[in-house]
Nucleic acid binder design. Structure first.
Lengths: 216, 216
DNA sequence: TAGATTGTTAATCGATTAACAATC
DNA sequence: TAGATTGTTAATCGATTAACAATC
């Protein structure tokens, strides 16, 4: 069982490994990875241990199997379908974001309740009305929903999604959802992220302390 | 000195306190806050202790002073100016995001190097060419930059920003920046966030384990 | 071989949680 | 007063780091 802090570092490893692979390298040491990411070599080795891939003393880790192992551990080796609710500015940006493909995430439909937006095309996807949510989720057996709606409507929407069969929610709304324990919720909360930045800025100002940035 | 985990919970407290305030309440107990956010009451009290606000046994905490104290601890009580670099879909969404106002964050300028975008209006802000970055930062004494650019250009841009006097970077590009320790860097990395969701989904599938969602 | 690097066990560090006295 | 709630000290838990043997 891999710890959450390790999971959070996986994408950074992945990007770096892909970069080195493209550069033509096929082996890399924990020391190098650590140096590039501002981590310690021990931590990198501990994280790598989680993937099941073994390194070779004096050489390091073979890049290709490491990439595969991390992808597999994250479940990114096979595509997962998700729906997106909310076709505002943020929702639109997420719907168009091509990077998701490399995480195995495919947004297969976008929903909104604004009549102006319904029927509009976002990239290749047509915006559907919210009243079709239940049927769509059912017919396409989607398990993951991305929420990019205003805070005020987030809780109610989340409850609806769960009742329609959604098992995991990626929530971009600035609202903490209260849902049954069996539902997986992951937040991407701009306020939380900015709070950390703000706090570090305040510290810097007050006590002249250096930043201590981490992959948080 | 308030810990980072506590800082990360502050925005959630803030939203909840504001909600209760609007509902007409002026006091609230740690028990209630904990219940609403899926935390323990002890943890809430510990976090509240960090703000300096004292509660009253049997009653709880007075909401208004608590809001003020948290805002102040985050430095959100006075407006901070920032520039945004990258006027793509995500950059556009961030530039238009009204929620920033409640964190004291004001995006005062947007930069891009795409000739098509330069001169365009995003909300009330006109997109400026990157070559004006240095002068703008200097003249407006901006210390914070928000980066919403492709991964490939992120490192170089970050180094430029630092050389132009930027002290803190909020990085939305899927790239880990390597910068001097005195620069504050905060990431909002979609890949990291989705990795946690993915890992939890995998766990659920494999061992039928319940979600264990936290305010991460 | 010598030395760089891995992998693991033990020590440290920090945050959460438990226990309980203090208080209105 | 009785009881709910606060605040603090100590215990627990988990992740990071240090130390060191194993290995190519």
């Amino acid at each position: 069982m891999i710890s959450i802090p390790t999971i959070k570092r996986f994408p950074s490893y992945l990007r770096l490994l892909q970069y080195y692979k493209e550069k033509g390298f096929s082996w890399i040491s924990a020391t190098t990875l650590a140096e590039d990411l501002g981590l310690t070599a021990v931590q990198v080795r501990k994280d790598m241990a989680g993937t099941g891939v073994e390194g070779k003393p004096k050489v390091g880790f073979e890049i290709a199997p490491l990439i595969d192992a991390i992808m597999q551990n994250l479940g990114w080796d096979q595509p997962t379908d998700a729906i997106l609710v909310g076709a505002g500015h943020l929702g639109g940006a997420l719907a168009r974001y091509e990077g998701f493909a490399s995480y195995g995430l495919r947004i297969i439909a976008v929903f909104d309740n604004d009549p102006v937006k319904i029927g509009m095309k976002i990239g290749t996807i047509t915006v559907l009305p919210m009243k079709e949510l239940r049927q769509y989720i059912d017919e396409h057996s989607v398990h993951i929903a991305v929420m990019a709606v205003p805070a005020a409507t987030a809780q109610e929407l989340a409850e609806d999604l769960v009742s329609f069969g959604i098992k995991a929610i990626w929530n971009f709304a600035p609202k903490d959802l209260k849902l049954p324990a069996y539902v997986i919720v992951q937040r991407t909360d701009l306020a939380t992220s900015f709070a950390v930045l703000s706090a570090k800025c305040k510290q810097l100002l007050s006590c002249g302390q250096s930043a201590k940035n981490e992959l948080v």
